[in-house]
């Protein structure tokens, strides 16, 4: 779920860059305020690779195909670090695979960073008390929020010459096709955190 170049108006692409720049600045400020930010770098580096490679995992959901996003996993595991990690992953995906455009990098950053931060917030609020519920909710909820942001951007930036009704119908089909992915990502985060709780609790955000 990446916006390619030329799909949205230039103004929207610039606004996306501005919003993402603000988000990255806030994230870096929060990271800098931590007692030992460098201690997180190995985990961030490895999860950035997982996020980068996940876009290649295509899951056929007729009549379309979806791919893993892992925004919820990034948010739960990395917290504020998820923002720079996702941006690096998106940049590499755009450069190496052509997934998403460079002009739309800011918007794609918003589409995935905001759900990641929401997942982080959910985990922080209820992860200590109900870890399974929080993990599943973070994974599944991040996909739903990302699809909602994506659909809003696409439908807001429709060019006048396009058949808006046909595009709206296509976006609806696309959004429905992501519901199984939301469940799958919820289960992925749930299982991963359960495994970490059992074998290496120190890797957990609440470990």
């Amino acid at each position: 779920m990446h916006l390619p170049d030329g799909i949205v108006p230039v103004e929207m692409a610039l606004a996306g860059y501005a919003c993402t720049a603000g988000l990255v600045a806030v994230a870096l400020h929060r990271i800098k305020a931590r007692p030992d930010p460098q201690a997180e770098i190995p985990r961030v580096a490895m999860l950035t690779t997982v996020f980068f490679a996940a876009s290649l995992v295509a899951v056929p959901v007729p009549p379309t195909t979806v791919h893993l996003m892992l925004a919820g996993l990034m948010g739960v595991m990395l917290g504020w670090f998820a923002v720079p990690a996702i941006m690096v992953g998106l940049f590499l995906q755009a450069m190496l695979f052509g997934h998403g455009g460079l002009t739309t990098l800011g918007l794609n950053g918003m589409i995935l960073c905001l759900p990641a931060l929401l997942a982080f917030g959910l985990w922080r609020q209820i992860g200590g008390r109900w870890p399974d519920l929080a993990a599943f909710g973070a994974g599944a909820g991040a996909v739903v929020v990302a699809v909602a942001i994506f659909a809003t951007i696409v439908l807001t930036g429709l060019p006048a010459e396009l058949d808006a009704r046909a595009e709206r119908a296509a976006v609806q089909v696309f959004a429905l096709a992501h519901l199984p992915l939301a469940l799958a990502e919820g289960v992925i985060v749930l299982v991963l955190l359960r495994v970490l709780r059992r074998i290496e609790p120190r890797l957990l955000p609440h470990g």
């Binding site: 779920m1 916006l3 390619p4 170049d5 030329g6 799909i7 379309t64 994506f150 659909a151 951007i153 696409v154 396009l162 595009e167 296509a170 976006v171 089909v173 696309f174």
Partner: peptide, 8 residues
């Protein structure tokens, strides 16, 4: 283009 995806 289709549902936010496309190319030129």
């Amino acid at each position: 283009r289709q549902s936010g995806h496309g190319a030129m």
